[in-house]
Design a protein around this nucleic acid. Structure first.
Lengths: 212, 212, 212, 212
DNA sequence: TATGAATGAGAGTTCATTCAT
DNA sequence: TATGAATGAACTCTCATTCAT
């Protein structure tokens, strides 16, 4: 925690943290590639260059790595959202163009999407995991809901449904499209998400001014 | 020996078909509940009330049941679609209300959706299965794409993206929302899908009046 | 048994005999190729073009086919021997040349040899089978022993060991060489067996005349 | 904790080596008794007093134990041969008497012989195993061939066939005789092998006196 | 006689996890 | 902390055999 050993090559704590980080990262790659059920602890340890024992020195079970990944996932999505939320108060055109570039990044986030699907699937099957997962998920959905709400507010329109539900629907769309990805075929995810977003805006009532 | 029990006794073929049907149905339920990887052939056979050997008398492998389910899935969705396609030539309001009642049925299709996700995940990991799967999937997407195309044609509007891609996006949305379902919470999937559909229609160019 | 139905295509008995014969022959081929343990009843039935049930209509168990093969094996070897035994009384040179052509046929008898090895191995493991097998084997060894004995008698020499034991050794040599056969490499079995036979003759004492 | 038991306690490496050795030895016994196909990994592990997992911690597959046994077999036979080869340069009578005592040991090698037969059978059926097996076999045959060659050279005679082929024939004879062994009956293998060897020597041309 | 679906035991193998080192 | 041999349960799949048809 405290950075009091800046000179030594790798303090014990740093070395341990590195082992842990490498195991987590390897686990993420393998879960994405082969699924949670399709990845064994031996796979993770071998691929990361450690023994199985090293895994158990750092995690109590396979599910615990998944929890760790959930935390990282949460942070990554929060960071993405905070970038969008900062755009509040900008002109509508600017906000839309920011959204556009955000949607473009989704294509490169295929891994996170697949991981998110694995997390959701596992939450649907493991009650203990579900508890942790719902908390993160609900928080994330609420945050994205606020972005959606403020987008419509900026445009001076009434959202066609509860912003949180719309946020959930956009996440659903993103994950569903990630599932459809086939190596070697172009991925239209980002573009399609924007098409749907523009549709929502177009269908929203604008009390003050007609269809501007 | 004598044919004195014409109603209850099953002929060999019937009995065999029944075994097969029960195994398939049990497999579907378990794949939905526990995932493909989380379901063992023991589970399926036990739950259906047969021996493991009975499973192997009917299917060459676990993947083959999945293929059988895929066929059933395809037929069910094709039937649904053909009902929608028959509506061609109706008035736009009628078509939309038909769509509305169709979307309402999606809520009860949660199982098919989860199965579809399992199928997609497995296709992403098993090249042999992928071949069969893509064929079915592409056909289905094309059919739904034609429904989408004819909807916009009926309304006299230009779809905001390739109808097939839109069809894929709606399927993605449906699957993504199914993934979010939590037992005990209300499921807004059907309603949200219609919200998005209306949005697309609203954002579509109509030849008569140009939308600025 | 009685040939009273010479006109009909295939009487019931003939048809059954044919099924049985085909199963036996297929079993022989598969035992030779894959071993007794490596051949399943399904393999035999499938390969012969029948159902597993057909197998059990003709044989009580897998071991029973092996017994059937043992009988066929015995007959085949008895036939071979009787040809050699008929040569008794001939001139020594003629006898040796007959033996030479017999040894040459061994190369084509690789299948019988491998079957013989399978039979021996199974006899070493199944006491019930061993009983039947030893009977056949002892009879065959005794018969071949008489041929060996009469060969030395014809040559006017004393065999360097008990003729029966020599017979067993020649069978051992034949089987051991069959085991060494590798597809694609020339098989010197026949020639080597003759080399050894000539060796025995050369080393045999001839009381009357020295080494002629 | 304290090192107060210096003799009995096994270090990790020792304990691991012991496990491996016990598994190998048990496998050898069972392969000999029941054949390769007739021996399951469960059998080996149970008989050795370990779990099946322990087997897989030490060997990748059932075939790998067979390879390990092959190596042991090879070393044992190489050691035997080197003892014979050291006898080069001795007087012919001495060499023959050495051979005689060597042949006597063959009787006690019944297990190795049966194992050798299992190895050969498995090599005939498993291409991957065949590769390893042929290498060892060819080397062994070549070594024994040199012993045979030097024996004839010592005796000043021309061998009646290629020494390597004669070596192969002697191995075939040994294996074939091992196959004939029946518990409770005396085993004349060693004596018969010497009878055949003397026969070969008797039939060999000797430069001094031409053998008609 | 012949069928082949169904059985139940057992095959080889993998896995998450434990524990002495 | 990290090791990896060892465990025991579970996995997919094959087998000889039974039995209703």
């Amino acid at each position: 925690m405290s950075s009091t050993t800046p000179r030594k090559r790798l303090s014990r704590e740093e070395s341990q943290a590195q082992t842990r980080a490498r195991l987590i990262d390897t686990a993420r790659q393998l879960f994405v590639a082969n699924g949670y059920g399709g990845t064994s602890i031996r796979d993770i340890a071998d691929e990361a260059g450690y023994s199985q024992g090293a895994f158990y020195s750092n995690f109590a079970s396979k599910e615990e790595v998944l929890l760790e990944l959930l935390r990282g996932h949460m942070e990554a999505e929060a960071a993405q959202l905070s970038r969008l939320i900062d755009n509040e108060g900008r002109a509508p055109e600017q906000l839309l163009s920011e959204l556009e570039s955000w949607a473009a990044t989704l294509n490169s986030d295929a891994d996170w999407c697949m991981l998110s699907i694995e997390l959701q699937l596992h939450a649907n099957r493991s009650p203990t995991f579900a508890v942790e997962y719902r908390t993160v998920w609900d928080a994330h959905r609420a945050a994205l809901g606020r972005v959606v709400g403020s987008l419509f507010a900026t445009l001076g329109r009434t959202p066609p449904a509860d912003p949180e539900q719309l946020a959930g629907a956009f996440m659903a769309l993103t994950h569903g499209l990630a599932l459809q990805r086939v190596a070697g075929r172009p991925d239209p995810s980002g573009r399609l998400i924007l098409v749907f977003l523009r549709g929502l805006i177009a269908s929203a009532d604008s009390p003050q001014q007609q269809d501007g």
